[in-house]
């Protein structure tokens, strides 16, 4: 994906999910480690529950008892 003044990198915000950032992208974490994604879009965890932080692993999903139904 290009990242130029004519075609700036797009970041998509979803209050209920990860932040979507056009790749390739490097994320500098709080401890200084750098994570790199070459994917066309990276999903960056915003709930802080991911086991593969800084990337989303869908841990933000709502959890429920099966008996109570899914919706």
């Amino acid at each position: 994906m290009a990242n130029s003044p004519e075609r700036p990198r797009r970041v998509t915000i979803d209050p209920d999910g990860p932040m979507l950032v056009e790749g390739p992208v490097e994320v500098v974490c709080a401890d200084g480690t750098v994570a790199t994604s070459r994917r066309f879009t990276a999903a960056i965890c915003t709930c802080r529950r991911s086991r593969i932080y800084p990337w989303c692993d869908t841990s933000h999903r709502r959890r429920t008892d099966r008996d109570q139904g899914a919706t």
Partner: peptide, 14 residues
């Protein structure tokens, strides 16, 4: 597939 499909899911639904 954990990392890739967490992205794909967002892109496919949206």
């Amino acid at each position: 597939h954990v990392a890739a499909d967490a992205v794909h899911e967002q892109v496919v639904r949206r």
